[in-house]
């Protein structure tokens, strides 16, 4: 079983988000980059499935050389080998085109992404890959098992869940529940240094959109405190002043 896991290099979850160049670019100063948490869940499940189905896990990242520590972390978690497409990840369409171009003749049985990256949150790469490779895609899954030649996935729907059986190959975006986050052990970290990391050059992709400006949310006014002895006043305020109940 051949599995491809698509990974992003994103600012750590505790990052304070600021912008520069007249609010047109993300301020990378002092920012710690990590493996996107949702991609890490995808990778953890991929490693489990590869172990039980005697398969391999390739990780792919679209990024410049600065993302290599994140790729090495993925190798330490248990990926077999890695590919880096040597380009700044302009947007989801660009990334999906690069990955589809790499994957199109490699016969992967399963392609996993995180449900979204925690920086741009487009949640687009999985479904775009499905379309570009002409295979089914499921955008947000909470469970993933392989039964014969089928993927059995549980997808979230508003107020419930849906269980689907889909013949492989498929693309899926994973959310919490698919696996526990794996912490690399010392053996993994040591072996990651010598695992293959191939660098390939990008293809040219038409640009359909671009970010022209960033904003940060306006600060809220200061909190109105209600005396703990009279909590019923809160309900009055929510009804009469805020008019939300």
């Amino acid at each position: 079983m051949k599995i491809l896991v698509c990974i992003s290099n994103v600012p750590d979850t505790t990052t304070k988000i600021t912008f520069n160049n007249d609010n047109t670019s993300f301020n990378e100063g002092g920012v710690q980059y990590v493996l996107n948490p949702y991609d890490e869940i995808a990778l953890s499940r991929a490693v489990e499935l590869a172990e039980s189905n005697s398969g391999t896990v390739t990780v792919i990242n679209v990024g410049e050389a600065s993302t290599e520590p994140t790729i090495r972390k993925a190798l330490a978690v248990g990926a077999t080998d890695a590919v880096r497409v040597n380009a700044a990840p302009r947007d989801a369409y660009f990334v999906a085109q690069q990955i589809a171009n790499y994957a199109k003749d490699k016969a992967f049985d399963l392609i996993l992404t995180g449900r979204e990256s925690i920086d741009y949150n487009g949640a687009q790469v999985a479904a775009m890959l499905g379309e570009l490779l002409h295979i089914p895609s499921v955008s947000i899954i909470k469970k993933l098992n392989i039964e014969g030649g089928n993927a059995v996935v549980e997808r979230e729907i508003e107020g419930g869940k849906e269980v689907l059986s889909i013949p492989l190959p498929i693309v899926a975006g994973t959310a919490e529940g698919v696996a526990e986050w794996k912490i690399p052990n010392m053996r993994g970290i040591m072996s990651a240094r010598t695992k293959p990391l191939n660098v390939v050059e990008p293809i040219s992709v038409e640009q359909l959109a671009q970010i022209v400006k960033f904003d940060t949310p306006a600060p809220r006014g200061s909190v109105k405190l209600i005396d703990a002895a009279e909590p019923e006043k809160l309900i009055d305020l929510l009804h009469a002043e805020a008019k939300v109940i």
């Binding site: 989801a92 369409y93 999906a96 949150n121 487009g122 949640a123 687009q124 790469v125 999985a126 479904a127 775009m128 499905g130 379309e131 570009l132 895609s137 499921v138 955008s139 947000i140 997808r155 979230e156 729907i157 508003e158 038409e206 359909l208 959109a209």
Partner: peptide, 22 residues
């Protein structure tokens, strides 16, 4: 929605359209 998230990118690729989610 959960379903909309799965549809928009595929429609975008089919129509060579920019996809603006959220």
């Amino acid at each position: 929605s959960f379903s909309g998230k799965g549809l928009a990118p595929r429609i975008g690729v089919k129509l060579e359209a920019a996809v603006i989610s959220g």
